[in-house]
Amino acid sequence: MMTGTPLTASPTLGAAEPILDLLPDAPARRAGQALNDLNASLHLWRLCWKLGWLDLKLRYRGSILGPFWLTASTGVMVGSMGVIYATLFKMNVRDYLPFLTLSLVIWGFIGGLVGDATTCFTQAAGMIRSMRMPFIVHAIRVVLRNLLVLAHNVVVILAVFAFFRVWPGINAVESLPALLLWLVDGIAACLLLGALGARYRDIGPVVASVMQIIFFITPIIWKPDLITHGRQYLMFNPFYDLIEIVRRPLLGGTPTVMLWSAALGFSLLFCTAASLLFMRVRARLAYWV
């Protein structure tokens, strides 16, 4: 009669005993895998850049102006909105139009990045299923794609600044660390919203609706100076903090220590949440897409 003894490989054959490990990964192991994913993605930065550039070319394939349609539409929007809102807010056009131009271009980058972040992994479903590639490559790809769009729209900012002879001077250098913080937050947004969007396809429309509300409650088309009472509560809006640390130096000002502290604090919380979620669901993304 056969017994219940498990069948093992004979040591004389030199074959290792097969082991099927069905236990969940330990947190330390998941963290190590996520760090390996990040390290491999950073080494593939050329691939990320090529994929982002290819996405932009395919989006405007067959178009005459290509991505410069975004530049033209941004210029028309700034020109039409600038005079109207300057009249409504009783502000000088020379002071208001550079602020509005810079704000709309910045918001276009943030809004486009957040919108693309919700489909970060689902749009790359074919690549995820067909080849072994670090997941963070797709997040960096989305960030670089929107960075290229931002570079096209910088032409509008330069044109408006040159027309009104508004130059930030040496203060513009202070916006470079803020832009670096944006890139880190952008990757975190892709990991967080991309994972949630892969699991729940309603995340995209929900995020789009929320971003519309945030656009109106954030100083984009109106200046923070218009709030005479309770202006300090703007600091609790993370979008205001992140926008202001870039916008204020480009307008010739200097961000306060409180503003930078709030921006770094919100970014730290956001990146921590994105890292924890990504470490937890990384092994399931290929099945969700």
Rank of each mutant, 00 (worst) to 15 (best):
D185K: 02
V207C: 08
Q232K: 06
A274K: 04
F121I: 09
I157E: 12
T218L: 10
C48N: 13
D25E: 14
G82T: 00
R141G: 12
H138C: 01
V78A: 13
L285M: 03
V281Y: 01
L192S: 05
S261Q: 12
P98V: 03
T5K: 08
I106N: 10
M91C: 11
P205C: 14
V93P: 01
D185E: 02
Y85C: 08
N153C: 11
L251K: 04
L54H: 04
P224W: 05
A117R: 06
L250H: 14
L191M: 10
S80A: 14
W49D: 13
F270G: 04
G169A: 10
Y233A: 15
G253Y: 07
G204Y: 06
I157F: 12
D37Y: 01
L148Y: 02
L183N: 11
R29Y: 13
P224E: 10
L35D: 01
L102R: 05
M77H: 05
V246Y: 03
L47V: 07
W69R: 09
V155K: 02
Y233I: 13
T122H: 08
R29G: 13
R29F: 14
E174N: 08
T74E: 12
C190Q: 09
I140F: 07
A162L: 01
R145I: 07
I217Q: 05
R61P: 09
I227H: 00
L242T: 07
P134L: 09
L192Q: 00
F109R: 03
L88W: 05
L264C: 09
M258G: 09
F135W: 05
L51H: 00
D225Q: 06
N153E: 13
D95K: 02
M211Q: 04
N146Q: 15
A139Q: 02
L264P: 00
T71Q: 05
N36T: 08
T71L: 03
L276M: 07
L148I: 07
S267E: 11
G4E: 15
D202V: 00
C120L: 10
M211C: 07
I221E: 04
G112C: 11
G230D: 12
L7T: 03
Y85E: 11
Y200V: 15
R201N: 10
A178I: 06
F164S: 06
S73V: 14
D185L: 07
V207S: 05
L38T: 03
A72K: 10
M211V: 11
V83T: 14
C271F: 03
L181H: 08
D116N: 04
A72C: 10
R280M: 15
V160T: 09
T119H: 03
V105N: 07
F215K: 10
L180V: 14
G4M: 12
V207R: 01
A159H: 04
A117N: 06
T3S: 12
C48M: 13
A139P: 00
V257A: 08
L70K: 11
G204M: 12
G112V: 00
L102V: 09
A28D: 15
I213C: 14
V257P: 03
F163Y: 11
V93H: 01
S275G: 06
G197S: 14
P98A: 11
L180W: 04
R129F: 07
R280L: 15
W222D: 12
I214F: 08
G126T: 04
P238V: 03
R282Y: 06
V142I: 09
L35E: 01
P177K: 07
V149R: 10
H229Q: 15
T5S: 13
